[in-house]
Write a protein that binds this DNA or RNA. Structure first.
Length: 222
DNA sequence: TAGGCCATCTGGTCCT
DNA sequence: AGGACCAGATGGCCTA
């Protein structure tokens, strides 16, 4: 994951090249990255042990689920942050404390829901799911999912145009700008449309990394 | 040991 | 008023 750690959004677009080549999964066999989550698609949502929730000591102390040194931890934080908020000032300490704990619990639940949703996302995007492979980070999951969606949209568009071409013998000549499909109304983000000015092989390669096997022009001899 | 990633706490803001 | 959402701070775990 050495590369992943410093990957920008653009770098992730680079990674997406792996999809187009013969329908291979994201960055199959990319060396170190492959071993950490960028190999062939897995079979399910099995997550490595590394994903087990960790509870920092301070958090556990004041989580509201344990009653050990809660008050100590609370006092430490209160001192560190100074006097409470205006809302706090209107409440008695006990009341204030239990309100805080319930807010914390709610926030924790909210973050768990968010993480569950991210796990769901990891389960449906193609990368290696196995106990020996580290779970994708949150940011990696989001960027990978975005690229996956773009790739799927491109594939769909390509298929539609191929069908049109086969039906009418003119589909591929249709100007891209006139094509009905611009996913999510974000033409600027849509690589195929955005690169419409490029000659076809370049256009296909610009996003997929390779000329498209489905594209007539990519397969034409010069 | 530094840096990345993460969970949690917390206070502020907005909405119902 | 209470809940949802957000961002900053903090500290723990892990890896290079």
């Amino acid at each position: 994951m050495a590369e992943l750690k410093s990957l920008s959004g653009d770098a992730y677009l680079e990674l997406s090249h792996g999809y187009a080549a013969a329908g291979l999964a994201y960055g199959a066999a990319r060396g170190p990255e492959a071993a950490r989550g960028y190999g062939m698609p897995g079979t399910g949502s099995d997550l490595p042990a590394a994903s087990a929730p960790r509870v920092p000591a301070a958090a556990a102390e004041s989580s509201g689920e344990q009653s050990g040194d809660e008050d100590d931890a609370f006092e430490r934080r209160r001192r560190r942050r100074g006097p409470g908020s205006a809302a706090d000032g209107r409440r008695r300490p006990r009341e204030q404390r239990s309100l805080r704990l319930s807010i914390n619990a709610r926030e924790r639940r909210r973050m768990h829901d968010l993480n569950d949703a991210l796990d769901g996302l990891r389960a449906v995007i193609p990368y290696a799911h196995s106990p020996s492979v580290r779970k994708l980070s949150k940011i990696a999951t989001l960027l990978l999912a975005k690229n996956y969606i773009l790739m799927q949209a491109q594939a769909l568009d390509e298929m539609r145009r191929l069908v049109a071409y086969l039906n009418h013998g003119q589909g591929l000549a249709t100007p891209v700008a006139a094509a009905p499909l611009t996913p999510f109304g974000q033409a600027a983000l849509y690589p195929f449309s955005a690169s419409a000015a490029l000659p076809c092989p370049d256009k296909c390669a610009a996003f997929s990394g390779t000329p498209s096997a489905l594209c007539k022009h990519c397969n034409e001899k010069p």
